[in-house]
Design a protein around this nucleic acid. Structure first.
Length: 462
RNA sequence: GCUCCCAUCGUCUAGUGGUCUAGGACGCCGCCCUCUCACGGCGGAAACAGGGGUUCGACUCCCCUUGGGAGUACCA
């Protein structure tokens, strides 16, 4: 049997890190087993679904590299199927029309809550015979009163629910549209989904869905409820709790491979290992090693992993993203890939890279006051004069040659390299931080270096 | 409130009755390297929530307590 998993987000909110991990685990499970991974947009709530959210889901998955196998299914388009299933249940006497108003239901629940009981529909329309003309109604599933329903979960093991706890849920709204539990069952069955991997916030729905599978005489899939990712405060990820659209991570300078690796390790593990390529993840991933405990989102570890992947990247592979986030025109300046190479090991994301690259393409207009004060002392001018003279006479403007000049000048004046390197660095970049000074100057070019040193000294003197 | 889930360093986790004086990673602290910032190297502090059982022996199995989380919609 071919394994087929799906990711079924609702486009009512942005796809965040939690949803992205659910998609990742689902995708990994399918890819590991050589199966298929499909996408279904659960847009049956027409009021709250937005095209923007749908776009974030699609863009986010593409960015992460989680490819899906067939055209995405928009659930709303399958409404006729859902209605047909509901009718089938009515015909079998397993569903019925309920004419209770929202107000009536609200009061009922309030009363139950007041008595300390779990709010449940009491089934007052179950045995109603007459069908009043023109009165709005919903369709409810007649759920069994006796016995228990067992969810056999690949992550959590067997979870037993007492059927008495489950009330008659609405499967068709008064406008005739299907609700989640009906649609998800009908569609998962129709799409041939073999394994449902989803967040454990859905665990409580699962016994209801299993009952629907049984009522519709359909084969239920295997379930795997993965623990949720909580925000740094320990609460569920939501718009309110620091949940950021997954696409924001791209803007913040993260690499998709790093995000994927981080997300995979949140809940899943493989011994002591931390770093996994995409292919290793596909080869090694399994549901057996997914833990049961919820985890917190740890930005620092993501940052570390991102740095790791950034350091390992080919500079040329980073050019486009850096250019996209760089606030300067690179035309006429040093080769961006070479600049990136010089900056890589001291950056942990694309934003750092872009920020560090900026001065290569734009002359500094202001100079860091603190750095100036700290590094420009009495002897500095003499050092700079000597450097300018000797560097200007160089036949070859290469790091080694530049390095030799700096060393020679410092030896001549019997001072450490920092006495000269720092003033130069500040003059050419505006601040006290850059790649190694010889590499930086080589990249900048002889003419530009000397021009900046000159104009910088003029500015400071003024 | 009720139902369900969960419980190892601050965080992510390894650990499936003895190999645990509990391992790794991030972060943190110290040292080294050093032209800045980083990278890197070395070292360190840091956890089995509590209480009962079961067992010759519990981090590992069972129960209770406590703590955390989810659900409880004509949302998904």
């Amino acid at each position: 049997m071919t394994i087929r998993t799906r990711f079924a987000p609702s486009p009512t909110g942005m796809l965040h890190i939690g949803g992205a991990r659910t998609a990742l685990f689902s995708w990994l499970y399918a890819r590991h087993h050589g199966g298929e991974f499909v996408l279904r947009i659960e847009d049956t709530d027409r009021q709250r679904s937005t095209d923007e959210a749908t776009q974030v889901i699609l863009d986010g998955l593409k960015w992460l590299g989680l490819d899906w196998d067939t055209e995405p299914v928009f659930q709303a388009s399958r409404q006729p199927e859902h209605v047909r299933a509901a009718q089938q249940l009515i015909d079998k006497g397993l569903a019925y029309r309920c004419y209770c108003s929202r107000e009536e239901l609200d009061t009922m629940r309030e009363e139950q809550r007041a008595c300390g009981k779990k709010p449940k529909y009491d089934g007052r329309c179950r045995h109603r015979r007459e069908h009043p003309e023109g009165l709005p109604f919903v369709v409810r599933f007649r759920s069994p009163d006796e016995g228990e329903t067992i969810v056999r979960d690949m992550v959590l093991g067997d979870v037993v629910f007492d059927n008495g706890e489950l009330d008659d849920l609405i499967i068709l709204r008064s406008d005739g549209s299907p609700t989640y539990n009906l649609a998800v069952v009908v569609d998962d069955a129709a799409m041939g989904i073999t394994h449902v991997v989803r967040g454990s916030d859905h665990l409580n729905n699962t016994p209801r869905q299993i009952q629907l599978y049984q009522a519709l005489a359909l084969q239920p899939p295997v379930f795997a409820h993965i623990p949720l990712i909580h925000g740094p405060d320990g609460a569920k990820m939501s718009k309110r709790h620091g949940a950021v659209a997954i696409t924001e991570y791209r803007e913040a300078g993260y690499l998709p491979d790093a995000v994927v690796n981080y997300l995979a390790r949140l809940g899943w593990s493989h011994g002591d290992e931390e770093v996994f390529s995409r292919q290793q993840l596909i080869d090694l991933f399994d549901l057996e090693h997914v833990g049961k405990t919820a985890s917190r989102f740890d930005q620092q570890k993501l940052d570390w992993l991102n740095g790791h992947y950034l350091h390992q990247s080919e500079p040329s592979a980073l050019v486009n993203e850096v250019a996209r986030l760089l606030d300067a025109d690179t035309a006429g300046g040093p080769d961006l890939a070479a600049v990136i190479a010089s900056l890589q090991e001291r950056s942990k994301n694309i934003i750092d890279l872009a920020a560090g690259a900026c001065f290569f393409y734009r002359r500094p207009v202001v100079f860091d006051e603190k750095a100036l004060k700290k590094n420009f002392k009495e002897g500095t001018d003499a050092l700079l004069d000597a450097f300018v003279e000797q560097a200007g006479a160089l036949d070859e403007w290469k790091p080694e040659a530049i390095h030799s000049v700096i060393v020679a000048v410092c030896e001549q004046f019997e001072v450490g390299m920092g006495k000269l390197a720092q003033p130069i660095r500040i003059l050419i970049s505006g601040g006290p931080v850059s790649p190694p000074i010889d590499v930086t100057l080589a990249l900048l070019g002889c003419q530009e270096t000397l021009a900046r040193i000159h104009s910088g000294r003029m500015y400071i003197a003024a």
